[in-house]
């Protein structure tokens, strides 16, 4: 029982410590250390993708595979719930 409490307290302390370190990190609201990729997005993103919204340019062009996985998740969640709730379907 005592070891579980100790583990719980240690986990909370670790979480708070990591959160405090992350908030103090200059990477949160500052320039990234490696500007090779980010710099390219900022410098050439508008002209390469012909999109003013750089967030859309990154999400829908440079990192489209993220969307591919995201759409798979959307379809999987929809299909799962629909299969559970379908008329005459099995109920646990």
């Amino acid at each position: 029982m005592v070891s579980r409490r100790l583990f719980f307290v240690a986990a909370i302390l670790l979480f708070v410590g990591l959160l405090a370190a992350a908030l103090r990190s200059p990477l949160v609201c500052d320039l990234p250390r490696d500007v090779a990729v980010d710099g390219h997005y900022l410098a050439a993103g508008q002209m390469e993708t012909q999109a003013n919204d750089l967030v859309a340019a990154v999400g829908f062009d440079y990192r489209s595979f993220d969307l591919f996985a995201l759409s798979g998740l959307v379809i999987a969640s929809s299909a799962s719930v629909v299969a559970l709730l379908r008329k005459g379907g099995r109920r646990a």
Binding site: T49, Q50, A51, A56, A57, F60, D61, S64, L67, S71, V74, I75, S77, S78
Partner: peptide
């Protein structure tokens, strides 16, 4: 403008609305 970005936006919106 933006080539496939606008088209992917439309396709994704259709997918999300349907799902």
């Amino acid at each position: 403008s933006s080539g496939t970005i606008a088209l992917i936006n439309g396709a994704l919106a259709l997918l999300v609305i349907g799902a």
